[in-house]
Design a protein around this nucleic acid. Structure first.
Length: 210
DNA sequence: TGCCAGGCCGGGT
DNA sequence: ACCCGGCATGGC
């Protein structure tokens, strides 16, 4: 994948909190919609934990409307910053200084943060060595018959983590390439699909599809 | 015009 | 431990 596509330099986001906000906003949502929401938050100077705590949840929701599930996601952003304040005095430095396994458990206990969001935060905002599993990762694995649709999240994650050196830079680039590549695979990831590439990982051209 | 996008929650078996 | 409906906008 690296040879075919080159390094992806993920995650887009200028600050750690922007990465965290993006991780929540992009849940089951296209990134272009998330970018618009981030821009609006940026314009209103709402890309900091303290600012998100101050703003009324309804106004927050109206700003992120374009990213979908906006009432849910406004509540989720609120839940995270409240957690950060009560547990780490609002300090991301303190939060990310926590041992990876402990912090992962804490993040999972927050409303609106599930396995993928927790791991995206740990890896992309905190530089912790966790492998992020998402829909694209599953799709590619299914296509190669390396996993079944309903294999548990943690099982897939640990397969990667136990097969690779615990290097956050590697996990970062690896997952980013999985997302990029996964976009070329059919949603149902069935092994027999004629349109999806196996290897080498080259983009599906119009000819290949027809 | 319906399907899809870098999930997660809560209630039910 | 799984299964499923609900959550919502914008692009193609």
């Amino acid at each position: 994948m690296l040879r075919a596509y080159g390094p992806q330099f993920w995650w887009p986001g200028r600050t750690r909190f922007e990465v965290i906000a993006g991780a929540i906003l992009t849940q089951n949502t296209s990134w272009t919609n998330v970018e618009r929401a981030i821009t609006k938050l940026h314009r209103e100077h709402l890309l900091s934990p303290a600012a998100v705590e101050r703003v009324p949840v309804n106004h927050l929701a109206s700003l992120i409307r374009c990213s979908g599930y906006f009432r849910q996601k406004a509540r989720k952003l609120k839940a995270f910053v409240e957690f950060l304040r009560t547990r780490y005095q609002g300090s991301l430095n303190r939060m990310f200084a926590t041992a990876t396994a402990d912090l992962r458990g804490q993040l999972l206990s927050i409303y609106g943060i599930g396995p993928e969001t927790a791991d995206s935060i740990l890896l992309y905002a905190g530089n912790h060595p966790v492998f992020v599993v998402d829909a694209y990762t599953r799709r590619i694995l299914q296509r190669h018959q390396l996993a079944d649709r309903k294999d548990p999240y943690d099982q897939i994650r640990q397969t990667f983590e136990s097969s690779l050196p615990a290097n956050p830079k590697l996990f970062n680039e690896y997952h980013a390439l999985m997302v990029h590549t996964g976009k070329h695979f059919c949603r149902k990831g069935e092994p027999a699909c004629e349109h999806c590439p196996l290897r080498p990982y080259l983009p599906v051209t119009r000819e290949a599809k027809s």
